[in-house]
Design a protein around this nucleic acid. Structure first.
Length: 423
RNA sequence: GGUGAGGUGGAUGAGUGGCUGAAAUCAACGGUUUGCUAAACCGUCGUACGUCCUUAAAGAUGUACCGAGGGUUCGAAUCCCUCCCUCACCGCCA
């Protein structure tokens, strides 16, 4: 949620920035400002009337104490009149406040000035590439065939148990999941992130806090009996840990990492994208989250990007880093770098991580603040990134490392996996 | 799931209708003093939204908030209702 103050101070600039995100309804900015004006007027009216009610009530108390009953009765009449005037004001005020909130929430975050113009994924800018694309033989198989060959993921039985997109990992496939999660968490905690294991369902307030609600309501699995949402990423519970808190400046940066399964309905997805492990409803992911001093957030963003990049390098996978253009980045983000790995048999790039700076967009919703050196409370910036999402990493590991003798795992995983080969 | 107790500022905790936005203690912060450390003393020490004033910072002032929402009353942290949460015991269970 954007800060109202920013809209008030510089509505023109806000509109310009929204245009880069290809956000069409710039009229919202004006309607929000006009609602805000109305709100302030009503509040002033309400406050002054209420102040009168309060002071008169005190007088009544004093008169009663002195036994001046008649005067007290007269004052009571006065208060009654004031209160009947107050009621409609109050009602209008809450209507306006709600409208204002509803409208404000519809505005996406402003892109930072590092965001390239552009509308579609084709306009994203490749910042750099790393690793080596393997040269596979003609008989090389895509991962969905390798999975069958080595009997490590059983989609059919997963579908029988739940539905399509719920893979059932088996044997070395299951163990590889465990190994990767373990390795990723170790890699993150070594870099100073505190490990959490959060709840996998969250309440409405948490889902709202990180921006899943109301924007992506249909993308989450929902448990109506308890009004809980299955988390689409550990970002949701982990960032919400500090919801409604005021930190000390010395507490910053807060660095957190968590493993969780992620549940996504992926409503509207179809086609070859969903083949095999490319797109599933439930997958494992390790996430990193930071809450930082505002002026430092872009440095931290670079640091997180470097962190994820190093992790991919240790996995010996060919990757590239993309700076997402205004039209392709997410609603809440100010700057997003995506990581893609090259899946050699499919001959396509697969997104495995997304590292974003949200500035105050999330923290304004969650009211995550800190006291600065002057003792003033201000919002922290929040950032997060995947480090990493498993299924596409697995797809890539399988395809790129296939040999006649089996899948050769990168060295770093050997101790975690308890072996070098899937065969 | 059942029964009981309870939810007050960073923490502990007082407060059963007006003098309470909230005592006291601790923690934290600033200062004074003491040859370091420690102690003592003084001061500061909630959030949000407004209004006035100011270039701004600061300041003054109003309103709301004592788990959440609603109600009673001229007036509610305090009384009533609903919900949520915590703790204890019981039941069930990984």
């Amino acid at each position: 949620m954007l800060q109202l103050q920013l809209l008030r101070q510089n509505p023109g600039q806000v509109k310009e920035r929204l245009a880069i995100k290809h956000f069409a309804e710039t009229g919202l900015v004006d309607s929000i400002l006009s609602l805000d004006d109305q709100r302030k007027k009503l509040q002033l009216e309400f406050d002054t009337t209420q102040a009168k009610v309060n002071s008169t009530s005190k007088e009544i108390g004093a008169l009663m104490a002195k036994g001046q009953k008649e005067e007290a009765e007269a004052k009571k009449q006065e208060v009654a009149t004031l209160k009947s005037a107050l009621q409609p004001i109050n009602e209008r005020l809450s209507v306006i406040e709600k409208q204002l909130q509803d409208e404000l929430v519809k505005l996406p975050n402003l892109p930072s000035d590092k965001v390239p113009a552009g509308k579609t994924p084709a306009d994203n800018i490749v910042i750099r590439e790393g690793g080596h694309k393997p040269r596979l033989s003609k008989e090389a198989l895509p991962h969905w065939d390798l999975i069958k060959k080595y009997d490590i993921v059983d989609f059919e039985t997963g579908a029988k148990l739940t539905g399509s997109g719920f893979p059932l990992y088996k044997g070395k496939g299951a163990k590889l999941q465990r190994a990767l999660v373990q390795y990723f968490l170790d890699f993150n905690t070594k870099a100073g992130y505190t490990e959490y294991l959060p709840p996998f369902m969250v309440n409405e307030a948490s889902a709202f806090g990180t921006g899943q609600l109301p924007d992506k309501e249909g993308q989450m699995y929902y448990m109506p009996a308890d009004n809980f949402y299955m988390i689409p990423t550990a970002e949701v519970p982990v960032t919400n840990i500090y919801r409604d808190e005021i930190l000390k400046e010395t507490d910053l940066p807060v660095k957190m990492t968590a493993y969780s399964p992620c549940f996504r309905r992926e409503a509207g997805s179809f086609g070859k994208d969903v083949r095999g492990l490319n797109r599933v409803h439930q997958f494992e992911k390790v996430e990193i989250v930071q809450l930082v001093y505002p002026a430092k957030s872009y440095d931290v963003h670079e640091e997180m990007v470097a962190h994820v990049e190093k992790l991919l390098q240790t996995l010996e996978l060919p990757y590239r880093v993309l700076n997402l253009c205004g039209g392709d980045m997410s609603f809440a983000s100010a700057l997003t770098y995506d990581f893609e790995v090259y899946s050699a048999a499919q001959e396509r790039w697969l997104e495995v991580s997304s590292v974003s700076n949200f500035e105050t967009y999330q923290t304004n919703r969650m009211k995550i603040r800190f006291k600065d050196e002057k003792g003033k409370t201000q919002l922290t910036h929040s950032l997060n990134g995947s480090s990493l999402a498993l299924p596409r990493i697995v797809a890539c590991l399988l395809e790129n490392n296939q040999t006649p003798g089996g899948i050769k795992l990168p060295e770093i995983l050997h101790p975690y996996f308890g072996g070098k080969l899937i065969n």
